[in-house]
Simulated assay, not measured.
Amino acid sequence: MLPFLFSCTTHYISQWQNYDKENVLADDGNLMMKNDTIGVSHAFNSTDGTVLVRIENYSQNPMLINLTKSALTINGKTFGYVDGKSTVRGWLDTFGSADGGQFGSFGGEIAGKTNTLFVPPHSYVEGSFANIQPEVRKIVGDGFQGNRVDYPLFDTPASTTLSFYEDTNSPMKLSSFINYSLIDEDNRPISTKVVNQNFYMSGFFEVKNMGNMELNRNLLTREDLGSYSISRGHGAGVVLFLAGLVGLVVVLADLVDEE
């Protein structure tokens, strides 16, 4: 257990604020872009860093979301909602030849990721896309300068290093573009439009003395927060544990010799 006693996990939590004037307050208390046809909201609290997007169809017609023509930008850098990668599943057989070379055969299938979403009338669809965690770590990092205070980020105050930002001085601005089409009974597009939503990082927090399970439980109630964690000290703990183990073996060996 010594490696764990000498380890420390630090959580870095980003807070996102939507600053579109057209936003409305949804039933769950979150801001969303909404008109007579479509409603779109974003959640940042997934454990893998992806953005959860919820799209609601209020119209009488089916709706088609074209993810290949949708994108998310961070400080002007574009990230697709789908990465275009495919997964190969199958098997590979190789055989030896007389001259020492090899040849073989492959059997299987290539599975591509969904690039369109079909939303029937008066229904909704949800999906997780675009991992923003690497960009947050690259831009803000884990060594940012903030103020150390007791701050109730969740239910109770806890010692936290934090920084707050306005939209004018935020280190990160994020925009989401969703391409959607209403389609008729023959699946032909009636109209095609783009919904644009804009966010900025309004706060960044460094939190210690909180377990992963507690953090994830807290994040379930805060869709405006994203996080990543860094553990340090495992190496030192392992070294001390091994040194103690070697010392114990030496002591036992001396006791055996004395007997």
Rank of each mutant, 00 (worst) to 15 (best):
G226K: 13
T37W: 05
R89W: 14
G127E: 06
V40P: 04
N61S: 12
L220S: 08
Y19E: 00
L67Q: 04
G203R: 03
Q60W: 13
S70K: 02
V207E: 07
F103L: 10
H122L: 04
S175I: 06
D184P: 12
L92K: 12
G96N: 15
S163Y: 00
S176I: 05
I74R: 03
A98F: 06
T114E: 13
L252G: 04
G237A: 01
Q17A: 08
M33P: 04
M1D: 05
V249Y: 01
I110Q: 00
K85Y: 15
L31T: 03
L242V: 04
N18Y: 13
I74M: 07
L174C: 10
G244T: 02
S159Y: 06
S123G: 10
F177C: 09
V136H: 04
H42C: 14
L67Y: 03
I178S: 00
K113L: 07
L153E: 08
G29N: 11
T10L: 05
E185C: 04
T161I: 13
H11P: 09
N131A: 12
L72T: 10
S170N: 02
T37L: 03
Q15D: 11
Y180D: 08
V246E: 10
M63C: 01
L240C: 08
G101P: 04
E56G: 06
I13E: 08
S191F: 01
V239T: 07
R137N: 02
C8E: 15
H234Q: 13
E258I: 15
M63S: 01
G226T: 07
V194H: 10
E223Y: 08
T160S: 10
Q133W: 09
F129Q: 02
N169G: 08
D36Y: 08
P134D: 06
F6P: 11
G233Q: 09
F4A: 13
V256W: 01
P171W: 04
Q17M: 05
D93P: 12
R148H: 08
A253C: 13
N212S: 07
V249P: 02
W16S: 03
T94W: 08
D28P: 12
N218Y: 10
G233T: 09
F241P: 07
N198I: 13
W91R: 15
L162P: 06
I139T: 01
R188M: 14
L245Q: 01
N131V: 10
P189Q: 03
V82C: 09
S231G: 04
L252A: 14
L220C: 05
W16F: 15
L72N: 05
